[in-house]
Design a protein around this nucleic acid. Structure first.
Lengths: 165, 165
DNA sequence: CAAAAGTAGATTGCGCGCAATCTAATTGTG
DNA sequence: CACAATTAGATTGCGCGCAATCTACTTTTG
């Protein structure tokens, strides 16, 4: 266990953090995110989904059939833009899991709705979070605290990014 | 702040975790990883690197000029395969930051070595971790604890994945 | 030493992410 | 009402990630 040196002894305290790969939070996040995605892969393969497609379905399952969910709403929930979502949603439509239809009252907007097949898939996915959580192997307290810290981190980073834009 | 319900009231305690997007660690990780990458982007743009390219250089800077680092070594450090690394390393070579040369004693292996330009880039990158860390806005204790939990999570998940392979 | 097994790396194909650009519909304003 | 600004979404292009397949070396083994 290498000891850290986040805030140095004196001068240049915030510009001289370690450049070591394993000291960096950014790499820990990058590695953890990919490891968890890889953990999902065999489960998602069984239902023929990719991980981002699964996230989109999580949003739709949560909103319900009659929520008038637009592409923009999904993008806001997942922080994904049209460049990612447009082709992804077309693939979900091609698989028969969702329908995409222009709204009559606003021809710009596309309403994304679950098909019965898409809604039914929820039951097959219900066991996923439990399996994933178990494989992570953190106890409830560490799990909750880590998730809370990640949320705080995302909020801070998002605010920071928005400021300097 | 929604309160959680990780382990339900009684039956099916580990198969009935919340399906809500915001309750899921996997989404917290996915969102945090992308938010941090986005935070790096303007900095990395200034030196003409992508985030994964930056990670590769972190490895090379850490190993030093004469470490005989192979593509496999970089892959082991970053958990990336040849399909990702081969074209990425060619791009770094095209930018003049690294050299790729077959080793004389083992014609299968490719030695990746920093050029003077690649080595010099380290100085321009030295300030990055500090800026990123500041934008994350976690105090030292929360930062260290979260990073430690992420490492533990990656270790557990990796072991789990390896078991069922 | 020859055939088999193993290893280092490259290539192909597909699905994200994301910037940049485009279209078409709606809203706002003089 | 005309015309500018805004908005929802699609498209293009590029660089990952990763599975699958391929090549070309090395090492093992009969």
């Amino acid at each position: 266990m290498a000891t850290e040196q986040r805030t140095g002894a004196g001068e240049r305290s915030d510009e001289e953090l370690s450049m070591l790969l394993d000291d960096q939070m950014c790499f820990a996040l990058y590695a953890a995110s990919r490891a968890v995605t890889a953990l999902y892969r065999p489960m998602l393969d069984e239902v023929g989904l990719t991980y981002p497609q699964y996230l989109v379905l999580l949003v739709l399952w949560e909103r319900g059939e009659d929520a008038a969910t637009g592409v923009k709403d999904i993008g806001a929930a997942l922080q994904l833009d049209y460049g990612t979502l447009s082709p992804l949603l077309k693939r979900l439509e091609a698989r028969g899991l969702i329908r995409r239809e222009r709204r009559a009252d606003d021809e710009r907007a596309v309403r994304i709705a679950l098909t019965p097949e898409g809604a039914a898939l929820r039951e097959r996915a219900r066991a996923f979070p439990g399996e994933i959580g178990a494989a992570m192997g953190l106890d409830d307290e560490e799990f909750d605290r880590t998730r809370a810290s990640l949320r705080r981190l995302v909020d801070n980073v998002t605010a920071y990014t928005r400021e300097r834009r």
